[in-house]
């Protein structure tokens, strides 16, 4: 992927260029937005193949929306996170039973825990714990603490107030702490 040649340009401006037929803008937007969209979908679903489908679909919607995009009304990333969230929600609702069954119980599975220790144990453990959170808490925690978005933007993405975001992230963190408490030693936090 070529280096972003529009480093200083906003996503909005690039989208206008894209809509005007600028192929370089298409490349820049792809390079800039795909990691964000895929990363968020992956953390929400915990499955690369599913996350790839969601990311591709979300960006297809953006490309189609480009000619009608109104500059200054919404951030491109905010719009995309909303689309990803909706697509993930649909996907999770369709596969809820299967997805929950597919999540291994970390406390009871010493073999998978040992394997996880060798292969990105901490990240996997976090993902497993995230997968067990209620969907809204998971989304808020991911957006706030992993994607690093500010609460007002998260509120816009989730269509709730800022106070609700604070409440969701606080409850989500507490639930994560509880889920991971029994694995502190295993994850190398016994001294901390």
């Amino acid at each position: 992927m070529p280096r972003d040649s529009f480093e200083d340009a906003s996503d909005d401006a690039l989208l206008v260029l894209y809509a005007n037929g600028d192929v370089a803008a298409a490349r820049s937007l792809t390079a800039r937005l795909t990691p964000k969209v895929f990363g968020h979908a992956f953390r929400m679903l915990g499955d690369r193949a599913e996350a790839e489908d969601i990311a591709q679909e979300a960006l297809i919607r953006l490309w189609k929306q480009a000619p009608n995009w109104r500059q200054g009304e919404a951030k491109v990333t905010t719009w995309l996170y909303r689309v990803v969230a909706n697509l993930c929600t649909d996907r999770l609702r369709r596969t809820r039973g299967v997805a929950l069954d597919a999540v291994p119980e970390p406390e009871d599975d010493a073999v998978s825990a040992a394997e996880a220790m060798q292969n990105q144990a901490r990240t996997d453990a976090l993902q497993l714990a995230l997968n067990q959170l209620p969907e809204r808490q998971k989304q808020a925690v991911i957006l706030r603490h992993i994607e690093g978005l500010a609460n007002p933007e998260i509120a816009e993405i989730m269509d709730v107030g800022v106070e609700a975001v604070e409440s969701l992230t606080a409850r989500g963190k507490r639930a994560l702490a509880k889920l991971l408490a029994g694995r502190k030693d295993e994850l190398g936090y016994s001294d901390g």
Binding site: M1, Y18, V23, T30, Q56, K64
Partner: peptide, 14 residues
């Protein structure tokens, strides 16, 4: 995935 997304972007570009 990056290649697929870029292909979509170019195919759907106005």
């Amino acid at each position: 995935l990056m290649a697929r997304v870029l292909a979509d972007a170019i195919a759907l570009q106005p």
